[in-house]
Simulated scan of single mutants.
Amino acid sequence: MDFRQLYYYREIVREASISKAAEKLHIAQPPLSQLLKRLEDELETTLIHRYRQKWEVTEAGLLLYDYANQIVGQTDQLKKRIHELEVGQGGTIEIGVSSSCYNLLIDYLQNFRSQYPEVKILIHSGDSESLVDKLKEKEIDIAIVMRPSFTDDYDVKVLDSEPNILITPESWANDLPNEPELKDLVHLPFIMLGAMKDYTFRNDLLKSFARRGIKPNIVMECKDLPILVSLVSHELGISIIPGMNNKSLDTEHLKIYKLPQLNVTVEPVFLKLKNIPLSTAANNFWSLVN
């Protein structure tokens, strides 16, 4: 068993298809099928049950996938570290930023770029849930996301949080009082920021309604904040979102209200894996966050 076999096997499992993995790896399908068969023969076990309409990775197959993931990841990290040694303070940082936090990242990027202009920065976008998963898999170095419920595995730097805000189509302003309360919202279609693993925003918001004996008229749910805001601006409903997005919203077709009675807070945070050393460049960026 060698590195190439582990790398190819990892892609087979990730793509859940030998043909798709072969296409991604730019090789023919038969050699990839033969590689999988050789691995199974060498390990004397079935790694993947392959039926006409079914694909199932066995327990042994999952164990090998985890092992392959670690080996490939460690090899990539080794290449990255060696490259940094050769180029001094160059190298690459991979930063994940959720759509709800991207406006908070700009100042840090400008500050870092002024000090380390040779460092390349790769930005990964997505919702907070998917970016935390990428951080766990070591696909990114640092993430700026809404704070998850459990952070024991991470080093955390908390940024200033702001109260949540209500956004409505501008043309619906007459449907609400100047200082609306939650009870004033129940007759309007509500677009909920979608539920995400390890995040309680949705449940906390619903509990706030429930404590008042009411519930929102949820007609849609959306994890992607820019899409959600666009849906509101196109008069498909109203929504309550984390207030840290206020400065970055395109408010041309929106009306924004504060909700001081809503005791639901969301903290934007920088995260990195605990006890996992960062590259020099990534560590320099982390040190700038205060």
Results as ranks from 00 to 15, higher is better:
Y8H: 12
Y9S: 01
E11C: 02
I18T: 02
I18G: 00
P31V: 02
P31I: 02
L39H: 03
T45R: 11
T46K: 13
R52W: 15
Q53S: 12
G61T: 01
Q74T: 04
T75W: 13
K79A: 10
L85C: 08
Q89N: 08
G90E: 04
S99C: 12
C101R: 07
I106R: 13
Y108S: 07
L109C: 04
N111W: 13
R113A: 06
Q115M: 10
E118H: 14
E118F: 12
V119E: 00
L131Y: 08
E137M: 10
I144Q: 06
P148H: 11
D153W: 12
N164E: 13
L166D: 06
L176A: 01
P180S: 09
E181T: 14
K183P: 00
L185R: 15
V186L: 02
I191G: 01
Y199F: 14
R202N: 09
L205Y: 12
A210F: 13
I214G: 05
E221K: 15
L225Q: 05
L228H: 07
V229D: 04
I241T: 03
P242L: 09
G243H: 11
D250E: 14
L254W: 03
P260D: 09
P268F: 13
V269Q: 07
S279P: 04
F285Q: 00
F285Y: 02
